[in-house]
Design a protein around this nucleic acid. Structure first.
Lengths: 151, 151
DNA sequence: ATTATTGCAAACGCTTTGCACTCCC
DNA sequence: GGGAGTGCAAAGCGTTTGCAATAAT
């Protein structure tokens, strides 16, 4: 089961790095896996608090960083000056199209990109650990532009 | 001459959008073109202030947004939750490798990326206006890791 | 017992806002 | 003269920090 595997992966990661196994860290992981789509760190904190968790902001922020290092979580940035996260559990790697008009986010996979990342890194002399690729534009949703959440 | 052309391009852009031609806007443009490499909005504001300009923060931020719309300026995000800008005057389009260890930024051009952006946008049904592509990793500079500015 | 981790609150850095004044059209 | 644009200061927002208390090793 995904949840157990994720816990196991996180536990191994923590031990490997001499980090302690704390209930708070696994509580954060559980909330992360429940999330559909992308979320901000503070958003997750608020959500946990309103579910009667006793977690602190600092712990949420720290744990998200650990989960990202552990690759259970992807860090994204959609050009809004805040970090967004997305669980990797049960998902394949992908990139995003962001509608700058209504805020809609669509996913796509394009294997050529990984290849390009490798080629460029080798060419320039760079030990690449990841990349970020976003396409911005306007989506074809007929209701596009009615969403007040867009910038 | 580049400076005159840029002014002319900005002037036309402003008129087209019913924006006013103000000395402050061209003052910002001049400072932008002087900058080598990437800079933050506040950084530019401070620099202008210390050059005895009477510019305000609000005007700098507003004008940078206009210059980006006008395509005299590129907006970048290197995963630090702040917007970075880079003058397009006298430069060709490119993307970046960011060293997460020392903060070094290298540029590269890869025409395949534009092609991919077009293909994906068509496929998904999306009217793309731009993209952002960053590769993260570790550079091969022997002094890498000694720079305290890196995250 | 030791010391990493936690919760809390306050500070931080970048950006946006509200307002009265200014000056482009 | 009207209203977009300006300068200023303060507020906003996401994130980080310092510290005493707690709990994993």
């Amino acid at each position: 089961m995904d949840r157990e595997l994720a816990h196991e992966q996180f536990r191994r990661f923590l031990k490997r790095g001499d980090n302690r196994i704390t209930p708070e860290r696994f509580e954060v992981l559980d909330f992360v896996m429940e999330y559909e789509g992308h979320f901000g760190a503070d958003e997750l904190y608020i959500k946990m608090k309103s579910s009667n968790s006793n977690i602190s902001r600092a712990t949420v922020y720290n744990t998200l960083e650990l989960l990202a290092q552990c690759e259970l979580l992807s860090k994204r940035n959609f050009g809004e000056n805040k970090t967004r996260y997305e669980s990797n559990v049960g998902k394949t790697s992908h990139d995003h199209l962001i509608c700058t008009n209504c805020g809609a986010i669509k996913e796509f996979s394009e294997p050529k990109i990984q290849k390009i990342v490798k080629e460029i890194s080798t060419e320039i002399g760079f030990d690449s650990t990841g990349y970020s690729f976003n396409i911005f534009g306007k989506c074809t949703n007929p209701n596009c532009g009615q969403n007040k959440n867009a910038k």
